[in-house]
Computed example of a mutant assay.
Amino acid sequence: MQLQFLGTGAGQPSKARNVSSLVLKLLDEINEIWMFDCGEGTQRQILETTIKPRKIRKIFITHLHGDHVLGLPGFLSSRSFQASEEQTDIDLYGPVGIKSFVLASLKVTGARLPYRIHFHEFDEKSLGKIMEDDKFVVYADKLDHSIFCVGYRIMQKDLEGTLDAQKLIEAGVPFGPLFGRVKNGENIILEDGREIIAKDYISEPKKGKVITILGDTRKTPASVRLGVGADVLVHESTYGKGDEKIAKSHGHSTNIQAAQVAKEASAKRLLLNHVSSRFLGREVSQLAKDARAIFENTHVVRDLEEIDL
């Protein structure tokens, strides 16, 4: 499981940073990639990675500002050009309005997709659990931005314990169907009369990962709720230390406020993105340094950076 950042800038692209988009790679878990926001130029950024567009099966949009959605029509159209590969449907989650935006864009440009888009729109009254399958559950909560905007909490369900095959062999269990019965939690009796207790050969369930990905927001209790105990919290850092007043007026956060959220939520790791283009070089390092004074495990991400979870 990895996060890869396709765009980490705020508002408009710069030479160093494209606008907002990131992907959660779940290739080992479910052979899928999930995208969060799709700002202008996202499909161009993908060309610099190993990402196969057909593997992107779900897209989650935090809000409808252009720097988070204007890349969608182009990406969805280009995704259909993978003629030599299997065409797969895509699920698109986002605030009410995302469906009309996408369909209007595709219609006026004459785009015809060889796959279906399944739209899942929500408003303030329909937040909470927005998706669940046998491996993951996703929650959304309203943040505090200049327009309706959400953050997402992605929770991997606990993983089943693994079978200690070597220990079974050492106990004299012949490889074959008996292994499967033990793996399924069934106690077995060997030919010599010994009983093999299944739980003694299966590890404890492994706690699933929690990933919190926030859209644009002022500091708000919802950010803390979404980030409680998260293995990784992705939080915007449009502004820096001392910029609280302008951050509030524009509906954004500073690096300090992001660090405070991570600390209050007892998150394990804070990744700062959505960085203003006025922060360059040493100033970016200072963003991280100032935030670490409050929450030590802080990192300012850069475009195309991949983070193992």
Rank of each mutant, 00 (worst) to 15 (best):
F101A: 07
D37H: 09
F81M: 12
G74A: 09
F75H: 05
G39F: 03
H120M: 10
I130K: 13
I61R: 06
S84M: 06
P53Q: 05
C38N: 09
F119E: 06
A111Y: 13
G94Q: 09
G39T: 00
E40Q: 11
F119M: 14
T62C: 05
E124I: 12
D141Q: 15
F36L: 07
H65L: 12
I51Y: 06
D123C: 10
H118A: 03
P73Q: 05
K125P: 02
H68D: 13
A140V: 15
T49M: 09
I117P: 00
K142L: 14
I130T: 09
K58G: 03
Q82I: 07
F119L: 03
R57A: 14
Y93Q: 06
K125Q: 14
M131W: 15
L103M: 12
P73M: 10
P114Q: 06
R79M: 11
E124T: 13
I59L: 12
L76K: 09
G128P: 12
F36G: 04
S126M: 12
G94W: 06
S105G: 03
L106P: 15
K55R: 13
F122M: 09
F60N: 03
E85A: 12
K135H: 14
G110C: 03
H63T: 04
S80I: 03
G41E: 02
E48R: 13
I90C: 07
D37Y: 01
T49R: 08
E132P: 08
V137N: 01
G66S: 14
Q45L: 05
R116F: 12
Q82P: 01
G71L: 13
K58T: 05
F75T: 07
M131T: 04
A140T: 11
G94T: 02
L72T: 09
